[in-house]
Simulated assay, not measured.
Amino acid sequence: MNHQIKPRRSVLYMPGSNPRALEKARGLMADCLILDLEDAVAVAAKADARTLVSEAVKAGGYGGRELIIRINSLDSAWGVDDVKAACEAGPDAILLPKVESAEMVRKLERMMVEYNAPARVKIWCMMETPRGMLQASAIAASSDRLTCFVMGTSDLVKDLHARHTALRLPVLTSLGLCLLAARAENIDILDGVYLDLNDEDGFRDSCLQGLEFGFDGK
């Protein structure tokens, strides 16, 4: 697949329902911003968040940061409207959650064509379920528009009935499968979030571990 080198060392999730956060993000030191319409947004705020995120992307002012819109799943009550709005707003990429098959990616790609997304808008995939891990190779090869995997280790740990540990032993197999698939198809792959914001040493160790594993960012 075609691959354009871009720094994706640090990636921040910003809740799409919070206008102050969307404004503050314009000055944050991060390579990429994921403007979230999914997990970070309450059900009652989904529609308003979609509008806020669309307007923020159209307004710009984020410098050289990549802007990614994480939509709700395509089969949810909000998925289709999220795709329509994202295609019109024109972010750098649309992030599809809980990807479990190549067909899910191809379905999003068809919708992006239908809703006239600019050709420069790429697809990113959240890899966060056991089924997704087992389909990582097929997913990575599913579309030339796909340029990045994003590990969703929090949901993955929950689905595995595992626990978060410093060395992340419960998810090493999953991380390895996705890394292999990403490298085989020459796409980027981002490590999962670090949950304890008060543990700077633990965060540093987690970043170093991700670098040693071969992730492109976190």
Rank of each mutant, 00 (worst) to 15 (best):
N186W: 02
A136H: 10
E55L: 08
V53A: 12
L180C: 08
L108C: 09
L167W: 01
P170W: 12
V121F: 07
R168V: 00
G192Q: 10
L134T: 11
L67E: 11
R50W: 10
C87Q: 12
L37Q: 09
A138I: 01
S17I: 01
V99A: 04
L37K: 06
A162E: 08
Q4S: 08
F213Y: 15
I34E: 06
G16L: 10
C178V: 12
M133V: 15
D82V: 04
L160Q: 04
K84E: 14
D201L: 00
E100G: 13
M126D: 13
R145Q: 10
P118I: 10
A56P: 07
L177Q: 14
G214D: 14
C207G: 01
L190S: 06
A21K: 11
A44T: 12
S174R: 02
G27Q: 14
A182S: 13
L33Y: 12
I71K: 10
D159K: 09
A25W: 08
E55R: 15
L177I: 02
P118H: 10
C125T: 12
K24P: 02
V105T: 03
G192N: 08
V150L: 15
A93P: 04
V41Y: 08
A138R: 13
A45M: 06
D92L: 01
D155C: 03
G64H: 09
C207F: 04
E38H: 02
A25R: 07
G176S: 15
L179W: 05
D205V: 00
R9Y: 03
A56K: 06
G132I: 06
